[in-house]
Each structure stands twice: as C-alpha cells, then as structure tokens.
Design a protein around this nucleic acid. Structure first.
Length: 168
DNA sequence: TACATAAGAATAG
DNA sequence: CTATTCTTATGTA
C-alpha cells in the first residue's frame, strides 16, 4: 500500500492505493488526521510507504479538477478495501454521475432497484473515495444540499467548482 | 414558508 | 436488539 497527499484551496486530500488501484481518498480537515489514519492502517496489517511518483496520473487529474476543468475520474482504477456489497453498488452507481450534474438520493435507489433512500445516504456517508466517487453530486430531492460527512463547506465548494463559480 | 414527525433500509456495536 | 444515518412525505399553522 502506498500513499501521498494532494493540496487544494480548501485543504489536503490523503490518497492511498494498493497494487490494484486507488483505495482511499480522504479529505483532511485537521493536519494531524493523516497521521492518525496512517497509523490505524498500519495496525490493521497493512504495510504503508510514501510514494509520490506512483500517484502522478491521479495527482494530475486532481490538479485539473481543482483548476476548474471538466475532469473524468472514471478511468482511474479503484480497489475497495472495505465496504459491504450494498455500499459498493451505491458507490459504483454514484461514480457514473457526470460532471456538473446532480442526482437525488431517492433516484439512486431507484436505479439500483432499491426501495430505501435512507440507506443510500448512509452508504454514501461511508464513501472512502471522495471526488473519485462524486458523492457531493447527490442532493436531496428538493435540490438542497443535505448532509456531508467531510463538511458542507466542502460539498458547497465542489459543486460550485463544477458550476464554474469558484468561491474564494 | 417553516417546523415537527413518522416511515424506512442498511449498518455498526 | 438498538442507535444512527449525506432522506422523504405528510400534516399543521
């Protein structure tokens, strides 16, 4: 397992990948959060090494994205190291939402043939791949933001970024 | 329009 | 089994 960090105007993102693909993309609210997460993973019998070169393609995509360009993350190989089958289904479906578009929690459920909309939000709250899986494009059915585990500030920022109204 | 509340599916502990 | 969650629909004023 390898890791690196990407900086952007709202903070930093910790990236972790296995030999198969990207496993975690976590927004760091506090500077010490990276260390906490890394030591937690080391205790879970993962061997972690820092390796910036390995993330070159991903980093370039992030830089493009935060530059306001329409970026497609669907070609990035991913490798879930956690999550139930249901959660993975939700994440994969969410990943198909195109740049700049939004969906309701309920309509995600309908696409999956799932009756529960509450569990969609619950699954998305455990999304390990922020931005790669664009959970910020999922809104409540009335178009308001709803919740966001990484902070509504960030959700608002990402949505406005895709709308072309970069807030600073 | 705004606020309270019931229903609802899946998961973590 | 109970509590929790990035919800939705309905009722009341």
């Amino acid at each position: 397992m390898y890791y690196t960090q990407v900086s952007f105007p709202m903070g930093k993102i910790l990236l972790i990948k296995s030999n198969k693909g990207l496993s975690i993309a976590k927004y760091l609210k506090a500077p010490n959060e990276a260390g906490k997460l890394l030591s937690f993973l080391k205790n879970s019998s993962f061997t972690l090494k820092e390796n910036d070169k390995l993330f070159k393609p991903e980093k370039e995509l992030f830089y493009e994205y935060f530059n306001g360009k329409q970026t497609d993350f669907t070609c990035v190989p991913i490798d879930f190291i956690s999550g139930t089958p249901f959660q993975k289904k939700v994440w994969l479906e969410t990943r198909k939402i195109p740049y700049g578009k939004t969906e309701a929690y309920k309509s995600i459920g309908e696409k999956l043939g799932q009756k529960g909309f509450q569990s969609i939000g619950q699954a998305l709250s455990r999304n390990p791949l922020i931005i790669i899986v664009p959970c910020h494009r999922v809104l409540k059915s009335d178009g308001t933001l709803g919740g966001f585990s990484a902070g509504l500030k960030l959700k608002d920022y990402l949505l406005r970024l895709e709308q072309g109204n970069v807030p600073i």
